[in-house]
Design a protein around this nucleic acid. Structure first.
Length: 488
RNA sequence: GCCCCCAUGGUCUAGAGGUUAGGACACAGCCCUUUCAAGGCUAUAACUCGGGUUCGAGUCCCGAUGGGGGCACCA
């Protein structure tokens, strides 16, 4: 790779990565991280890499790898290098890189930047659930002599490898979104690099892999902001070039709580099942923490690649609003070409409705659908007339009363029964003409027809559109039912 | 407890010293209309607080408050 010459030319070859751990689903925060990493790479004609961080054996969910592939594919995010797409920097699965981490850990020990620690897990209090954390103290093993280390090995103890953090001083770095961050080394703990099972921790593997895979821009959540100095100390110990950092603000719930699957917040896949279009979710998520700098909100993936700019990522956390997603989803649905919408909508039509002209139905409902899952309820009345009460025929806005409705239905049934051309235009023309000839307001005439045909206070289409859809016979049947209700 | 980060309407945000503080979602009303949507228009609604700096501060500095994150052989 001519990476170095590109660096010299000031024409950085961007290489970004998405490094999920296989948990079984993609949550919204992960989706955004993947998206931004992808956008940044593509924006600069760079390379986007997928790396699997499966270093926690206890958490590894076997089928979860498929979930990652599916999630990315669904989102329209394709990677240039990954487990099943070799780019010469693999393997791209951390559990297959164990010898690499071991070798690098040993190099650090030799350099004095890491040490073996023989403390057993229960030598230290379990601090995981404790809200307050005591001041950290340096691990006693960091003072072990070579002879003491050998003695412990001889006893058969299996150590972990810890990073040796400098006693004093501070470490700074510049983050693309947060600016300059400085942390006192005294705040940094001698974190575990290699676990006793031989697996690396995230803290170690991410540094080694990002370097070896020549990642130029590290994009991750801001929860890593305060541990980044530890990583930089590692880069320095190895003598490696430190990558650019882009830490992303958190995504919260609207009530300010953290977004979590456990609390019932939907994952990316869940949202798709709820009837949201992947492209709408991607569009929405892109806007959570990033703004194009103008009023534009509707973006396709291609639009996003063109518009994305890491310097326009915000610092404050954003709340996930399902309402706004729903609106944006509607925008995407309306923007689809009718054939594409019909394809997306078809699976949501009940079989009985499929018997009707489903394409025509799709044309009618496209503008009214916010989520694909709205469809079944929206079209159910077409196959089965709901039981409704005669009061539905009363509508102030249309100036329709029970009496006017009964009169209209009585007169319109023979009129329509005699109509030859049964399509929306003919129906509308005939009814409109009848209305003006007989002195009815259009609404007064149409309301009872629409109501009788749908049995609903609102329907995805007006009187003649529904009549067209239902066909002459069913239309007349429903009109007679309506009239019967009114005459009782 | 220690450290780090953040702060514009209910929500997402624009704003890089001088603006009637702009847009979007949601909400309400009106128009359009073959019901509902969609679309158009209108309304309500924000710079957390306190000190500075400056002729002038949402914008810069300090402090407070509030919120979030980190301090695992998790990532």
């Amino acid at each position: 790779m001519a990476t170095n010459s590109l660096f010299q030319a000031g024409n950085l070859m961007f290489r970004t990565r998405f490094a999920p751990s296989p948990t079984g689903y993609m949550h919204i925060g992960n989706l955004r991280t993947a998206l931004y990493a992808y956008l940044l790479a593509k924006k600069h004609q760079g390379v986007f890499i997928l790396r699997i961080e499966d270093t926690d054996q206890s958490r590894n969910v076997p089928a979860a790898l498929a979930a990652i592939y599916n999630g990315l594919a669904l989102a329209g995010i394709s990677y240039d290098e990954g487990p099943d797409k070799d780019g010469g920097k693999g393997p791209y699965v951390q559990s297959q890189r164990l010898p690499i981490y071991k070798k690098h850990a040993e190099e650090l020990i030799a350099k004095g930047s890491a040490y073996y620690c023989f403390c057993q897990k229960d030598d230290k209090p379990d601090t995981e659930d404790q809200p307050a954390h005591p001041d950290l103290t340096r691990d006693p093993c960091r003072l072990l002599t070579e002879a003491e280390v050998q003695a412990r090995f001889a006893q058969g103890l299996t150590p972990v490898v810890r990073q040796r953090i400098p006693e004093s001083g501070s470490t700074s770095f510049v983050d693309h979104v947060y600016g300059k961050i400085t942390i006192d080394n005294a705040q940094l703990d001698d974190q575990v690099l290699l676990k006793s099972d031989g697996f690396p921790t995230y803290n170690f593997a991410n540094v080694v892999d990002d370097h070896l895979m020549e990642i130029t821009h590290v994009i991750r959540g801001q929860e890593y902001l305060s541990s980044t100095p530890k990583y930089n100390l590692l880069y320095q110990a190895f003598g490696w070039q430190i990558p650019e950092y882009i830490h992303l603000p958190l995504i919260l719930r609207e009530d300010g709580a953290k977004l979590s699957k456990r609390a019932g917040d939907p994952s990316f896949e869940d949202l798709v099942k709820l009837g949201y279009l992947p492209e709408a979710i991607v569009n929405y998520v892109a806007l959570l923490g990033w703004s194009p700098g103008n009023d534009r909100e509707f973006f396709t993936m291609q639009d996003l690649i063109a518009a994305f700019d890491m310097d326009r990522i915000g610092k404050s956390s954003a709340a996930f609003s399902i309402d706004k997603l729903t609106w944006l989803n509607g925008e995407h649905i309306r923007a689809m070409d009718p054939a594409a919408f019909h394809r997306a909508a078809s699976p949501f039509y009940p079989p009985e409705v499929q018997a009707l002209d489903a394409e025509k139905i799709s044309r009618l409902i496209q503008i009214r659908v916010e989520k694909l899952t709205d469809i079944p309820n929206m079209v159910r009345f077409l196959s089965a007339l709901p039981d409704y009460s005669a009061e539905l025929f009363e509508n102030q806005k249309s100036k329709a009363t029970l009496a006017s409705s009964a009169e209209v239905l009585k007169r319109v049934i023979p009129l329509l029964g005699a109509l030859e051309n049964w399509d929306n235009e003919s129906l509308f023309a005939a009814l409109k003409e009848f209305a003006s000839a007989q002195g009815y307001k259009t609404g007064t005439l149409m309301w009872p027809i629409r109501t009788a045909l749908s049995g609903l206070p609102a329907s995805p289409g007006g009187a003649t559109e529904l009549a067209d859809l239902l066909g002459k016979q069913e239309t007349l049947r429903r009109l007679r039912i309506g009239l019967a209700k009114l005459e009782n």
